[in-house]
Design a protein around this nucleic acid. Structure first.
Lengths: 194, 194, 194, 194
DNA sequence: AATGAATGAGGATTCATTCAT
DNA sequence: CATGAATGAATCCTCATTCAT
């Protein structure tokens, strides 16, 4: 966590749970405060407004999320191993924190466009990690050398994101992480018989 | 159109414009009524409630959207041609109706999860079309025979969806349709050198 | 009343009573709505916001207030009779509407400076009436010809206003109108023995 | 100053500036504390509550204000000289402390009626000084012997007060003190040709 | 004496929906 | 069918005040 203030973290953790359980619009500030064990007004000592809670949740959690993936990737040598690690850890991390998955895949998207811009900014470093893997793969001659990096990044992120969202909307009834190899193969080899 | 009542369509068209221009949360029923040239109360003669307007917008527009894609696909023989047609027409149709693209890619997602369930129901036939293409491709031995249809569908839809969303968030500043071949190649052949 | 909408007037009348009885800051919109026999939301069909109620109360009441004084003055020939009429009617009108007197003398002054500017605008015509009397008096050679009109106006208004405010703060325990002749004499002849 | 504690005075001075610059309603206790260079809580070691700060500001400043006027008056023999001195010094003192003038003429009046009662109490000695002058003038046969002291006091105070308020609302754009003779003449001789 | 983090009560306003005409 | 005036529930945020340190 960026800030070591305990109340700040209490509120962040409470917000994830309350938003996951009630949905963003039914998550009154007082409900979050209550769950965090602080007074309503205390929220505003740590956050500018209700939206800021949401952005901060995303920043904090996304920060850890990316950090861990980057660590995992750094242990790998080849771009396709790195891609596999990214897919697998993306799925694993959301798989292991159901509340967080609900918030990122469903509730966070209910935000207005101002908020969405901020969320995109937080997401940038993650997208940069994807770009980096793709570039490395092209340089290593593991990936084709004519790839449009932006489109590849959108395919990789769009695919994983859609898969996680579907899983969440099915209430996480099946094993998400187990699908990492298949997804990786799909992205690597595409649909066509060679 | 489900109903041939002219006011029904007036309201649907007004809703697309108002939501695209103002965003979901700033699109009051009275604003839509005003744009449609009817009284507020009249809305409720044609729609159960505000959510119902949104679902209906999506139903109507998605109905046409899918219909046209199915027509396009039926003219093709091979699964990979069909897939190309689907990608190209998906991009083209949203490219040509900016208002609709904003509504489907951004504003509609701000709805609560109850509404999102209904939207998914509307989306089902489209996803079924994708599934059908994949199955045909496998039978024709054009696509690999070990594909997990659900995951493939999520990759195809997730990729296109992410690409369109990014395009909209960049205010449609570049040519979307032109990217269809590259996207199709990516989905078909994946990232890896063969 | 400027507007013949009955609810508009109901709300104005309710506001005078509620504000006079509770003070401006303890006069919640819901309390005014309740007194007026309308829903809270209805207030906002007729007034922009809470401040607008206050300004409108003043506009409506001040409009009548001035109108009557002007009528009274027009029946008089000489400036000093007109001045007497102004003093007497000013006192009489506030004397006869205790609620209104509380609102104008006490509660209205708790407004912020933005509101006060608007109130001053409403007051302008009344001050103009005073100016007119003074000018006439000077032309008629009834008043001294070296008067500084602005200062005279401020003396006349300041004197009456202070007297009414003191009366209100003593809960209207004595007869205000009866003092008109003395006040008029004071303003006319000053303090000094001639 | 009632208390010789330096922080007490720091807070009083800070309050005058903060209230004059921000207006009464935007003058949070924390803003005053900040300006005074003390912690929020420290305010409550010297003042019972926020209202008490205001009353104390008025008491302290009014105390000095009256003291100086009394000194000035004591140097004069005749009641009409004393009245002139009172008018002139009233204008001069507020003229020379713009912040204080804003607070006394505008911001302090936004207080609720409970506070206003206390303010009136503080004002009493000043009104007594006016009364004294009037009585002396009557005894000296300089002023008419049939004056209603209360009304005369209200005329004198109301006139000066209204003139200062108008001056403040015009941002002190003209010379206030220069008007003392005219005001004094008006109060002494009234409007009428003799 | 001094601090300042924490408290929590309180209220204007919006807008989807109704229903008398 | 159509209207649109009226309804009223629902909530974020501020800020004076407290009290453990």
């Amino acid at each position: 966590m960026k800030k070591s203030k305990p109340k700040y973290n209490q509120i962040i953790e409470a917000a994830v749970i309350v938003i996951a359980e009630n949905g963003y619009h039914a998550s009154q500030v007082s409900k979050i405060a209550n769950k965090a064990g602080v007074a309503d007004g205390t929220i505003y000592l740590y956050f500018k407004n209700k939206e800021d809670i949401l952005v901060s949740v995303f920043e904090e959690k996304m920060g850890q999320f990316i950090e861990r993936i980057v660590e995992g990737i750094n242990e790998k040598q080849k771009a396709n191993e790195k891609l596999f690690t990214l897919v697998e850890m993306h799925l694993r991390q959301l798989s292991e924190d159901h509340h967080l998955a609900i918030v990122t895949q469903l509730e966070l998207r209910q935000s207005n466009s101002a908020l969405r811009q901020q969320i995109n900014k937080v997401l940038k470093p993650y997208l940069a990690v994807i770009d980096e893997i793709v570039k490395e793969g092209m340089e290593e001659n593991i990936f084709r050398d004519d790839l449009n990096i932006r489109l590849v990044r959108q395919m990789i992120f769009g695919t994983i994101d859609e898969i996680v969202t579907n899983w969440i909307m099915k209430d996480g009834k099946y094993d998400l992480v187990k699908q990492a190899p298949t997804i990786h193969t799909l992205l690597s080899n595409g649909l066509t018989v060679k």
